[in-house]
Amino acid sequence: MLHIVNKSPLDRNSLDTCLATAQPGGALLLIEDGVYAATSGNAAAGKLTQAMGQMKVYALKADLEARGMADRVLEGVNLVDYGDFVDLVAEHATCQSWL
């Protein structure tokens, strides 16, 4: 299934709960303030890197650019646009947004 996180990992526990709940083989899409988790030097970067071993991780490029963070994305994170976002939702049978 597809997990979507839109909250900053250092402001809310959405990412923590998501990663603790998600089963191997799923996908994680980071959007809005959620994209901060995909940037190098962030305190949550380690958790996310670990999660990448079990699931595919995507981040919305427009949200990284808006925040001035597009030049420091963690290796292994796939950058996607809004069209890809729609495709991801359509590809997965279910979707959980960790609001």
Binding site: K61, A62, D63, E65, A66, G68, M69, A70, D81
Partner: peptide
Amino acid sequence: KKGFNTKGI
């Protein structure tokens, strides 16, 4: 943080 580009959003 320097470098906001909000065109996309």
